[in-house]
Design a protein around this nucleic acid. Sequence first.
DNA 1: GGCACATACTAAAACGTTTTAGCTCGATAT
DNA 2: ATATCGAGCTAAAACGTTTTAGTATGTGCC
Lengths: 358, 358
Amino acid sequence: MAHQTKKENGQERPVGLKFLAEYLALSPATISVVLNDSPTAREIPQRTKDRVLDAARKFRYRPNVMARTLRQKRSSTIGLLVHEISEGYGALLLNALDDYLLQEGYFYFVVSHRRRPDLLEEYPRMLMERSVEGLILIDTVLHKSLPLPTVNISGHTRVPGVTNVILNHHLAAKLALQHLVDLGHKRIVFVKGQAFSSDSEVRWKAVQDVARKMAVAILPELTVQLEDSTYSPVVGYPKIQELLSRSVPFTAILAYNDLSAIGAIRAIRDHGLRVPEDISVVGFDDIASAAFQNPSLTTVRQPLRTMGMTAARILLDRLNGGKDPREVVVQPEFVVRESTGPAKALARVQTSRRRKNG
Amino acid sequence: MAHQTKKENGQERPVGLKFLAEYLALSPATISVVLNDSPTAREIPQRTKDRVLDAARKFRYRPNVMARTLRQKRSSTIGLLVHEISEGYGALLLNALDDYLLQEGYFYFVVSHRRRPDLLEEYPRMLMERSVEGLILIDTVLHKSLPLPTVNISGHTRVPGVTNVILNHHLAAKLALQHLVDLGHKRIVFVKGQAFSSDSEVRWKAVQDVARKMAVAILPELTVQLEDSTYSPVVGYPKIQELLSRSVPFTAILAYNDLSAIGAIRAIRDHGLRVPEDISVVGFDDIASAAFQNPSLTTVRQPLRTMGMTAARILLDRLNGGKDPREVVVQPEFVVRESTGPAKALARVQTSRRRKNG
DNA sequence: GGCACATACTAAAACGTTTTAGCTCGATAT
DNA sequence: ATATCGAGCTAAAACGTTTTAGTATGTGCC
């Protein structure tokens, strides 16, 4: 037999076009044409096509993607640039992206820049060397536009060539505040996000805006700013603790995210009060552990799955010649669980002052 | 000027070896040799080397990885095969892998097979088409060996050519049981993992083994088997609830993982009992939300970061000619938090029966 | 003047595809 | 008998590197 996949050298070289060509007494060009069903394939009779297809199947022919990419400049690969592979937020997005991209026949590299400016510079370049066709960023501030089609999830800077996929923070703020107001809360503590967090600023603006429209007071003494940078459940704990120990009266907390909500709940309990009987707490994100909490968290859910799917869809559309919107907005959802309840009449100073609205 | 990076066509073709060669009046071969510092480079005078290096820098030359890979059969890319990008467990491993691999100059594809046998077959092939040099699997049962160097994290099947990175389940069981025994617990509920979970069987064996050695009774009526497949906090809830409502007496639960521990705690509280005052609960894994729980979970920590790092190191070693161990064992760590406490004297039937050991 | 030897490179093949222009052959038309 | 045509293919270049065997040039030596 002249044509056996040569195992002799022990290394079993993968079957290539050349091998098939020899086997079928055709040229590599023909095989390629048939297998890709390219225009020329119309001039090839079915009989030959079948021979080719059969042989390809028989020898389990798999084209070499490197060679193909080198030739046609399409790699069906995209790059995911994240600040780190975190639990919660990031993982859910990755899951959705993975789903969509693989489904559509794209593979992806994941690269985490850990918020280091040098890596943020370098990695996109390295991804380009590897011929990725586009980039998806997650929670990453981007200052200059990249030389590839880009979608930025939770990106807020306007850079030519990049599409931002963002949450409707206005609606999010409205849902949360409305819920608290409906429950009769008036003295509400507002927690602002850390400066490095991509969403902090825009979310805070939205909260202020909505509060004004709903005539909810944002009191300076009831506003706290997160500073801790650690991904930990004690984020925000000290701030709330301080408020409680100073006996500043309030009946609810609108936290920046679920983590700080959890920290707040700890502080409240450690201070001898109950959630939600004494104080209601609203989180933000709906990370997985939000539902596992005790009490489980009432929170604004970011539709992470939708956001991931949307980002991937937009990028792929664009790679295939579609338009690139500046911005795509997705809608939040409000999840009522156990951490919120009716406002309790305040036992201290402020209680009477606003009795008229009760 | 004859040599400017041609922007004329609007597309600014990236600078290649050819361009530099022309610019320097040298051959591409020379440039390549100098830039890669290959053996031949010793015969090139420093002066020329400098000219080359300068030009490369000046024009920001970046080699095309596809072309290089095609030639040398080394892609510096590996494939990560996971069952899904989950929160907790998976995310922490990915984080560690990302860290190590990027540091060492490797990029990686992530591919999730969602436990579908067809994808499990297909994806390794597709990764090979893309010239990955090796594979790392996470929590994936592997039946046949793959045609690439492979490391399986939490893999328990013995397949030639794959290295398993596993936890010392024996020690894990010992730590957990010892802790409970030290606190005076005797009637302990044991929770077995779902059949599809990669670790279920071996962990259960370890628990049985250790219990025997420590003379701790594993009573059939105090043994429950998880069945729910959902990644949710109510895993195990019904089983514990049933035990409680049947008034089977026990003072502690050794859960299969943190999730089922959380489910158990819910059930206990809903039944009007307290954790840990009435019943102690020990988890397993130390997922992020374990520390955020209320009460926070006492648990056996899997050193996920170490496991990821180890897996990556072993694979890279092997790609560079190192040996491939069958198996590498990492050690667990026991984390005492709030969900465990001294055993309470049982108020029911069994209380007196074993008084002698108290 | 011829030979050996070192120095400083280069030519060309190879990697595995895709693509386009064109070739060959037989059949039909003139 | 020759021109025309279509059907069925193929040659060869191209993609951007790496690698190996080799060439050209100069220098020193007898």
